[in-house]
């Protein structure tokens, strides 16, 4: 494998030097003008999102986009919203939730209270999944689920507890594969477009806007889920977030990552894997 020759630019457009400079300027502009810090986001992803936005709004150059960002304050939200990729589903990777039920739940059962942090919860599908899982394990009452995302829009969506009907069949299948022990249909009612999840599930949820790139921790947690979030970060930011998580986890706390994510080198030694291949890690006791 020729690892040096590979460039991940799969886009049809070549990456010009000017474009790179423009993107740097745009990112710097976002940070300086609005405190939106995307400086440590994966350039390739940001570039694609910028191109996408440019294509949708018929903007010719990134500099033009920067102009819009600086002079049309509402445009920032649009762009920032673009940068946050909101792809999620309920009981995403059912085997993960299955493993969580088998490996993590017995550990949680012993705790007098359970604090869970869903970092980068997006539109909340997984937060509700977790609540359902805990409910079925009779743990929901003593749990608090802190769900955060950098996108206010996503948080608002998540708060509503409504998910489109046209994705519910897939969610049902996921629920069943994740080892759901009750009736999925017992957790929601419907209108013509949405499945509206029972508000009792949300009783223990706390939603807040939180940016992993800039904000610090806000509590000590027994479980931190951050699935398919850090794939958008460069190693430096990943390192920062891992530190944040490690500092925020209680002794024997559990860290859950996405199916394509790995513990980066310096942090690997601080965790042990709970379930093979499910990216479920237990924080090791403090090394002396």
């Amino acid at each position: 494998m020729d690892h040096d020759a590979l460039d991940m630019s799969t886009d049809e457009l070549p990456v010009s030097e000017w474009e790179s400079i423009e993107i740097e300027l745009l990112i710097e502009g976002l940070y300086r003008a609005y405190g939106q810090d995307f400086r440590h986001y994966l350039r390739s992803s940001i570039r694609r999102r910028i191109r996408n936005r440019m294509c949708m709004d018929g903007v010719a150059t990134v500099t033009e986009l920067l102009g819009k960002v600086l002079h049309e304050p509402d445009y920032v939200n649009k762009l920032v919203n673009d940068f946050s990729i909101k792809v999620t589903e309920m009981f995403r990777d059912p085997s993960f939730f299955h493993a969580f039920r088998e490996k993590a739940v017995p550990m949680l059962r012993k705790l007098p209270e359970i604090r869970i942090w869903h970092a980068g919860c997006s539109t909340g599908e997984e937060v509700y999944s977790m609540a359902i899982l805990l409910h079925e394990e009779d743990l929901l009452d003593k749990a608090r689920i802190y769900a955060t995302d950098m996108s206010e829009w996503a948080i608002d969506q998540a708060k509503s507890g409504k998910f489109p009907l046209k994705r519910m069949q897939a969610f049902t299948k996921n629920y069943l594969h994740a080892g759901g022990s009750k009736e999925f249909s017992g957790y929601y009612s419907t209108d013509s477009d949405y499945a509206i999840f029972n508000s009792s599930l949300a009783d223990q949820m706390i939603f807040a806007q939180h940016n992993l790139a800039t904000d610090s921790t806000f509590n000590e947690f027994h479980v931190i889920l951050c699935r398919n979030v850090m794939i958008y970060f460069d190693p430096e930011l990943q390192n920062r977030v891992h530190k944040l998580f490690h500092d925020s986890l209680s002794a024997d706390g559990i860290l859950a990552l996405g199916s394509m994510e790995y513990l980066i080198a310096p942090w690997k030694q601080h965790y042990e894997e709970l379930a093979d291949g499910e990216r479920l890690f237990k924080k090791k006791a403090l090394e002396r």
């Binding site: 590979l6 994966l42 990729i85 398919n228 996405g258 394509m260």
Partner: peptide, 25 residues
């Protein structure tokens, strides 16, 4: 080096997939 590359590619592919899903969405 290969493993790093594979991991990088995997996560990059995940990013791409999600972005594509997003775009699709």
């Amino acid at each position: 080096a290969g493993r790093m590359e594979v991991e990088r590619l995997l996560s990059e592919s995940q990013v791409l997939t999600e972005e594509l899903q997003m775009q699709q969405e």
